[in-house]
């Protein structure tokens, strides 16, 4: 049900933009107004979510570790898997953000066939699909900067050249086009075919997958099968970023479908699970050094307690104590 409804939502979005542009001619709405609304929602929502999370107190380090903690001097610590200082945390975060190290440790638990034993095995499929999808999406995203910069920086052209290294077809086929579609389709298939996973999957798990699959497929279609005049397209995108929007005639509706799905992704982003883009940097189990035994961490919401030490007590009652013969520290 969740699968179908999210698929229907994405198809409805496509239908809306198709009818809106092709039948009603609302190019200014889909080409200018909604993209601006989406980018404001994206930036505003992103900042709001991060600042909201920043208000959550982190009173104590949560040591989820995979290595030896720093301890007695003759025991070798593992500073990347169990960091005790800022450098170790930095390396752990880099490995997490760029290479999904904790996902790489994903294991599968199952009853071994030839006996009543539990077996644990590495399970790299999720990691592989995730890394293919994320890196391909990043590279595809960065490649699109050719439509948003003038003159195009050399490094974007270099990235294109590397990505189109296979030099198949005209215009050349990009490796990341395949990886993106395979990655996101694989993640969708994984959700659909694993019964445990399907049981816990919600509408907002399927919707981003269908949306991104839609973006990827319309993108491939636009590049290779349903072509339009991309000079007009770049005039439009450059108009958007220089705040003098234009809506040239004769741009194929397929472009508007692609563009509107991206618009939806931007608008939806900060209010969904996709915010793990920002959230990964705020993971308390990853970004805090495990130094509970080295440094005293004080609970930030402890109430202020008015203390009255023994020395102060003695100052208050010294005369009476001396008179009663009670020993005092300070004469």
């Amino acid at each position: 049900m969740n699968v179908l409804s999210s698929l229907v939502v994405v198809l409805a979005l496509i239908l809306v933009v198709y009818l809106g542009v092709d039948k009603a001619g609302l190019t200014a709405l889909f080409g200018t107004v909604l993209p601006y609304v989406a980018i404001v929602l994206f930036l505003g929502g992103f900042i709001y979510r991060i600042l909201y999370w920043a208000k959550s107190p982190v009173p104590f380090r949560i040591p989820t570790t995979c290595g030896q903690q720093k301890t007695l001097p003759w025991i070798k610590p593992n500073n990347f898997d169990n960091p005790h200082n800022g450098f170790g945390v930095f390396v752990r975060m880099v490995l997490e953000v760029l290479f999904f190290r904790s996902l790489f440790r994903n294991t599968r638990t199952q009853i071994v066939k030839d006996g009543p034993k539990v077996g644990y095995a590495s399970n790299y499929w999720l990691w592989f699909l995730a890394i293919a999808f994320h890196w391909a999406f990043l590279i595809v995203f960065v490649r699109h900067l050719r439509f948003f910069t003038e003159p195009i920086p050399e490094w974007i052209l270099g990235l294109q050249a590397v990505d189109g290294f296979i030099e198949y077809g005209v215009p050349v086929f990009y490796i990341t086009s395949v990886l993106l579609v395979v990655g996101v389709a694989g993640l969708l298939v994984r959700r659909l075919f694993s019964s445990q996973l399907r049981y816990i999957s919600l509408l907002n798990d399927y919707f981003p997958l269908f949306l991104i699959l839609g973006i990827a497929l319309t993108g491939v279609l636009l590049r290779h099968y349903v072509k339009t005049d991309i000079v007009s397209v770049k005039e439009m995108t450059m108009g958007l970023i220089s705040f003098s929007p234009v809506n040239p005639e004769g741009v194929h509706v397929m472009f508007y479908i692609h563009f509107f799905l991206v618009t939806c992704l931007f608008a939806y982003f900060p209010f969904s699970k996709l915010m793990h883009l920002g959230g990964v940097f705020l993971s308390p189990t990853r970004n805090l050094a495990n130094n509970n035994r080295e440094v005293r961490h004080i609970n930030p919401w402890n109430p202020k307690v008015k203390l009255h030490s023994y020395a102060e007590y003695e100052d208050d009652f010294r005369d009476k104590m001396v008179a009663a013969g009670i020993p005092v520290d300070k004469e």
């Binding site: 910069t149 003038e150 003159p151 920086p153 220089s242 003098s244």
Partner: peptide, 11 residues
């Protein structure tokens, strides 16, 4: 980047 290059309106 475009503000710095000043070529946004180039066609």
């Amino acid at each position: 980047y475009t503000a710095a290059s000043g070529d946004a309106s180039y066609t």
